[in-house]
Each structure stands twice: as structure tokens, then as C-alpha cells.
Amino acid sequence: MLWRLLTRTGVLLVSLAVASVAVFATMNILPGDPAEVALGVNATEGAKAALRTEFGLDRPLPVQYADWMGGMLTFDPGISYVSKAAIGPQVLDRLLVTLWLVGAAMALAILVAVPMGTWMAVRHRHPDGVALAAVSQVGVAVPAFLVGVLFIAVFAVRLRWLPSGGWVAPADDPVEFVRHLVLPATALALVQAAVLSRYVRSAVLDVLREDYLRTARAKGLTPVGAMVRHGLRNAAIPVVTVLGLQLATLLVGAVVVEQVFTLPGLGTLLLGAVGQRDLLMVQTVVMLLVAAVLIINWLVDLVYVVLDPRLRVAR
């Protein structure tokens, strides 16, 4: 158990280090001089040199890398070459919005997919189970942004039930916060729920064939009781893998959905920074997204051990 924790954490740290070098190298090898981007093509050599000195761009790359990484670890990755504002606080604000969006979408997707997938599996020989499976199949094919646009057209424009976009911090007004979160989170969650429910279905179908479920029935548990007490935890093991992978795609989906609902999240920040060639900002946000994916996978590995005692072998 401890060994697994240590090795997995080691792998995480090495992956983070490698990823950070890759992100830094990519951004710095790309053609284009940050000073020229910031000041325009007509800027004088002197002005560009002054800017390079100001932002430390004249230093050797390893030094710049170490400076940036040190900054990342203390939530102060530096100052934007374009807006000349500190990047850290901006990113943190935006990160919170994205975390709310992705967290709510994931929670919603799980809440929908687990009962739905279980139902599809248990009733797979019945018309209702087959119909539900068909619905989820269609759901898989619909992109999140389309759902978002549809939601805005129906619930915001036509019915005027919910705002079409924007963001209210939970501390400012909890009710408005929820009202603004519902549509984007649901748009993001629906597709994920459709995908996830299919994995839940196949995991539960596998478990239904297991001998221990029959043992549970022979003990006197009803089909539902046997599934709840003995089936779901075992079915959760393969589903958790998919959840980890899905969280990564959710982050990508969030970038799009934030655009549709004009949410001030990491996605809009990233796209804006790309448009303005705000190189350090792009570099920082990309690194954050990469780190999020790696950390999620690390967590998935640890959740396995909690779920499956067979992995808790002392080595």
C-alpha cells in the first residue's frame, strides 16, 4: 500500500517535471520574439532590448525555466508581457470558475450515469433498457457546445428561466451563482453522462455474470440488494479508470462551453491569451491543465487501491 503510494507519487512528480520542460521548451522554441509581439513590428531595437531585460528574457533558457517553475510552485509565475499584470491572481480566479464548472458537470454526470447505466444493464433484455441504451448512444454523438447553444435557445431565450451566460461568484450571491452554473454544467455533463453510462452498463453487465453475485442471491439478497451490496463496488473499479480519462476530456470540453456561456474560466483565459500572443500566460495555463490531468490520474491510481483489496499486496 505504502509502496504503491510512493511509486505512484514518484511517477507523478517525474511526469510533472518532464511535462513542464516540454511545455516550456515548446513555447520558447516557437518562432516569434515575445518582445516584438508585445511592442509591435515597428518597435526599435532599443525598446525591445529594454523589454527583454525587464522580463528577464535575455537570460539563458535554463535560468528562465527555473524562474518560471519556482514561480508556478508559489502561485506567482510572473508578469504578462502584454498586460504587464501579475499572472498568478488572474489564473487563480479563472481556475476557480473552471473547477466549479468541471466539478459540477462531473458530479452531475456521475449522478445520472450510474443509475442509468445500472438500469440499462439490469434491464438489458427488456424494451426500457434497450431504449435507454439507444438514448445514451445518441447522447454520445452530440457535442457539448451544441447542447449549450440549444440550452441557451430554449431555457434562456425562449423560456427565460435561466441566464444565457456570465458568472456570479458563490460568495457574492449563492442563488445567482447556481442559476448561472446550471446550464453550462448540464451542457457539459450530458455528453459525459451518456459516455459514462455506457461504461457503467458494461461494467455492471460483467458483474452480473460474476459467481459472487449468484452467491449473494443464494444468501437471500434480492437482485437489487445483491447489486447494491456486492455489485456496484466491483463495477466501480473499471468505471473509475474511465472517470479519470473523462475528467481530462471534460477540461477540454470546459474550454468550449466557457466560450458558449461567456464564463470567465481558464478556457476563455487561454483562448484570449492565445489571441493576444500572451506567451507566458498560455504557457502557465497549459501547464496547469497538464498538471490537472496528471494529478487526476494519480488520484485514480490511489482510488483503485481503496476499491480493490487485491491491489493492496505488500511488495
Binding site: D211, T215, A218, N234, D308
Partner: peptide
Amino acid sequence: RGTTMAMVFQEPMTALNPT
């Protein structure tokens, strides 16, 4: 089941819940 009538299965390796 489990009170009046009970059953022992063939495959002990898979008859118990591994978790």
C-alpha cells in the same frame, strides 16, 4: 434462500466477493 435452503457452489475462487 440462506435460511430454509442454502447452496454451495462449484468454484470457490469466484464465489466470494473479492472486495
